[in-house]
Amino acid sequence: MKKLLLATALTALGAGVAAADPVRIATEGAYEPYNLINDKGELDGFEIVLGNELCKRAELECIFVKNDWDSIIPNLQSGNYDAIMAGMSITDERREKIAFSENYTQPAPSSYAAMSADTPLDSGVIAAQTGTIQAAHVAASGAKLLEFATPDETIAAVRNGQAAAVMADEDYLLSQIGDGLEIIGDDVLLGDGIGIGLRKSDTELKAKFDAAIQSMKADGTLNKLTDEWFDGNYTPF
């Protein structure tokens, strides 16, 4: 089992709240702007800042840990941490394994990127990250799916000619385009937005996170935070 790397702690204990084990939140640290490793070698990004605020509002002490994407759901199920905030879209397939909080983003477009605007997308080799909704979409499209463990590897596969194009969240691809790589084709809407992944048995923790997300939606702070990290390229609540 992959070693979990302890990252940054979020302390948000309200007055009079009894001490409890910290809530451990897993993230990938490799999917900008949702989650990333900054110049100081620390976990950062939209979901880290959002997690801080949600834990504060829920009066929880939280700790972020870094975990590879391909084992992020199994390690949640095994109890290595308590929640996932890693750009994970809410899908019916994932709901069979874990529970989700309310979504904290609206369904966001997925897109293709390639080195040429006339690259065919319904045939040839298309790269996507393993276990993503984009990989499932490519597999069903008629194109040949080439899967990689990390998003960086999917981009490299297009640049080095292993794949004709890559499919991923448009927000991520916008952070990677340039030097010939461009977004092509039409946007594709997949999933029900992004939420916090939780064990199905953790109903109390889910209720606390749901209430915190609802409060951020109600007072406009979730839209404001999303706007800051996505440069206005998002659908507001």
Rank of each mutant, 00 (worst) to 15 (best):
K2V: 09
Y34H: 12
T91S: 12
P120I: 14
A136N: 08
Y172T: 02
A207P: 05
N67R: 08
D187A: 04
I213K: 04
K217E: 08
E53Y: 02
V65G: 07
L6W: 15
T11D: 15
A18T: 13
L43V: 10
I63G: 01
G197K: 11
K66S: 01
F237T: 03
D44F: 10
T150I: 10
G180D: 11
A12W: 05
N35F: 00
D171R: 01
G51L: 04
A218R: 09
M216A: 08
L10T: 12
A165G: 00
V158D: 12
L13W: 11
K97E: 10
R199S: 08
I84W: 11
V17T: 03
Y234C: 03
A207F: 00
S110A: 02
E153R: 15
A99I: 06
S141V: 07
L190N: 08
I194D: 07
L10F: 09
N223V: 03
L121W: 01
S175G: 05
T8E: 15
I183D: 03
D152M: 02
A15P: 08
C55T: 08
K224Q: 05
L181I: 05
G29K: 12
A211S: 14
E59A: 13
L121M: 12
A18K: 07
R95M: 06
Q106R: 12
P109C: 06
E147R: 12
T221R: 07
E32A: 13
Y34K: 09
P120Q: 05
R24C: 15
M115W: 04
D152Q: 10
A7C: 08
T105P: 03
Q214V: 02
T221G: 11
A168H: 11
T226Y: 07
G178Y: 02
N80G: 13
I73A: 01
F209R: 13
G14I: 04
T226K: 03
D231Y: 06
S141T: 12
A58D: 08
T130H: 13
Y234M: 02
V23I: 11
A7T: 10
K217D: 04
L145F: 05
A114V: 02
L205C: 13
G195S: 05
D219S: 06
R95W: 09
A117K: 13
W69G: 01
Y234I: 00
A140M: 13
T130W: 10
E204R: 07
D169P: 06
E59Y: 02
T105L: 11
K206Q: 15
K200N: 11
G185R: 12
I73V: 11
A99M: 09
D122G: 08
A128I: 00
P236K: 10
E182S: 15
P151R: 09
S201G: 04
A157N: 13
G79S: 09
A26T: 03
L189Y: 05
A143I: 07
I48P: 01
A117F: 05
N35R: 14
